[in-house]
Design a protein around this nucleic acid. Structure first.
Lengths: 121, 121
DNA sequence: CCTTGACTTCAACCATTGTTGAAGTCCTAG
DNA sequence: CTAGGACTTCAACAATGGTTGAAGTCAAGG
């Protein structure tokens, strides 16, 4: 039985397991400002309880098509210990992005169907 | 006035201008099999009249989300001097791909809205 | 023939998104 | 106290999609 002391925060490995990504990815996201951490006296990272959640949201954002830098910008809006309303704004921003992507795909579909590409010579 | 002799094919620069991409991109697509060319006695590439069109289709395909290798696979179906029916099959494949992407985006949207991400602690 | 612009190859570089490995340090259970 | 696993940094590697530059060759007009 492994006792997890939440008091001083989650380690890299714990965030990795909770969010379903590799530990290397957790460090990468930390470097790029998607998640923040404090350091122990021995220089190890300790993350807040929302870290895993932020990683999951980051992953979905990436699948929607945002770059890591863009995800960082979106998550930068979140204060530490965010309220549901804070998350709501993030949610809305991501929904808007996804809908914009869908709109772009529809545009490409129209381009394809419109004979615009001049392929029948 | 620049006389363009279509008889022995288009040069890299002509394909680049006709398709709206850089000459380096035309060579890149050639290397990766999206467009084929013959060589002059002086080792220069000469493209067929459909080259610019293939490049345009490739660009749209990339925007849809296909990799260059995937675009190459789609375009490999096209015989030289393709019929409208041949282009039709390419068109259909790309439309299907785009719709699949839209479906994926919708899935991400649902994930976002379903509280699945466990952000409200 | 000669100049000039367009072409040739090849290697190096850019950004993006991580993974992998080496060498070393920390933390915790026993 | 000590062994072990988990952590640290840093650099190198990988794939993707090209761009840029160097050094040299081709093609066409005058």
């Amino acid at each position: 039985m492994v006792e997890v002391k939440v008091a001083d925060g989650l380690t890299v490995g714990q965030v990795a397991e909770a969010s379903g990504v590799a530990a290397s990815a957790v460090r990468f996201y930390g470097q790029h400002g998607l998640i923040s951490s404090v350091r122990t006296s021995g220089n190890q990272r300790r993350f807040g309880p929302d870290a895993a959640c932020r990683v999951k949201v980051a992953r979905v954002s990436q699948r929607i098509g945002l770059t890591v830098a863009e995800v960082a910008a979106v998550l930068a809006e979140l204060p530490s210990d965010p309220t549901p309303a804070d998350w709501g704004r993030v949610h809305d921003a991501l929904v808007a992005e996804a809908e914009a992507r869908i709109g772009d795909l529809r545009t490409q579909l129209q381009l394809l169907s419109s004979g615009e590409l001049l392929c029948q010579l």
